[in-house]
Simulated scan of single mutants.
Amino acid sequence: MSKHPEWLDATAEADVPDDDVIGLDIGGLDIALYRVDGTVYATDNVCTHGQARLCDGFLEGHEIECPLHQGRFDIRDGSPTCAPVTEAIRCHPVRIEGGRVLLQLRD
């Protein structure tokens, strides 16, 4: 069972730029928020291959590229899409309410 089962207020929806990524500390976790085609996604912000922050990487479509070794992840499900990355990143449920981005963090 998650130790963060509640929905946490992360930021204003307007703070997540179109076709880009931002990093936030939410509930003590380093989280990356993305907006692609009007949908907001959330993943852990640290690459599973190296200790690089994904918010410093390059977002192209639904893929975030790690700034350290250029491995990529699909932000919709966390799956690795390009070597050297082999381990998925965690994704977190997102909902928008009253112009706010709410997250349900997963352990």
Score class of each variant (00 low, 15 high):
62 H>P: 02
64 I>T: 06
43 T>E: 01
51 Q>W: 10
48 T>D: 04
41 Y>V: 01
54 L>A: 03
44 D>S: 13
43 T>P: 06
63 E>Q: 15
54 L>E: 00
68 L>A: 14
60 E>H: 07
49 H>P: 08
42 A>P: 08
52 A>T: 01
40 V>S: 12
44 D>F: 02
52 A>D: 05
43 T>Q: 06
61 G>E: 11
67 P>G: 02
56 D>R: 09
46 V>E: 12
50 G>A: 15
67 P>A: 02
60 E>N: 14
62 H>N: 13
65 E>S: 09
54 L>Q: 05
57 G>R: 05
45 N>A: 11
43 T>L: 01
47 C>Y: 07
64 I>E: 06
52 A>Q: 04
70 Q>Y: 13
53 R>I: 00
46 V>A: 04
61 G>M: 06
57 G>P: 10
60 E>P: 00
57 G>Q: 08
43 T>S: 10
54 L>V: 01
45 N>I: 00
68 L>H: 13
62 H>Q: 11
53 R>C: 10
50 G>K: 14
60 E>D: 14
47 C>F: 09
42 A>R: 08
59 L>M: 06
42 A>Y: 02
47 C>R: 05
58 F>L: 14
42 A>V: 04
55 C>M: 01
68 L>R: 10
46 V>G: 09
57 G>M: 05
65 E>W: 03
65 E>C: 08
68 L>N: 12
49 H>R: 05
43 T>V: 03
60 E>I: 05
55 C>I: 00
66 C>M: 02
40 V>R: 13
65 E>P: 09
42 A>C: 03
62 H>G: 04
60 E>L: 06
63 E>A: 08
68 L>E: 06
57 G>S: 08
67 P>V: 01
53 R>T: 08
65 E>A: 07
59 L>C: 04
41 Y>C: 02
63 E>M: 11
56 D>T: 01
58 F>T: 14
66 C>N: 01
64 I>Y: 11
56 D>S: 07
61 G>K: 08
50 G>Q: 15
64 I>R: 13
63 E>G: 00
58 F>N: 12
42 A>F: 07
65 E>T: 15
54 L>D: 00
61 G>W: 10
61 G>Q: 07
51 Q>L: 10
50 G>W: 03
45 N>S: 09
58 F>R: 15
51 Q>D: 12
66 C>A: 05
48 T>L: 01
52 A>M: 07
60 E>K: 13
46 V>C: 08
61 G>V: 05
66 C>R: 03
63 E>R: 13
41 Y>D: 05
49 H>W: 10
70 Q>D: 11
51 Q>A: 11
61 G>F: 10
40 V>T: 15
54 L>G: 05
41 Y>L: 02
62 H>W: 13
47 C>N: 06
42 A>D: 06
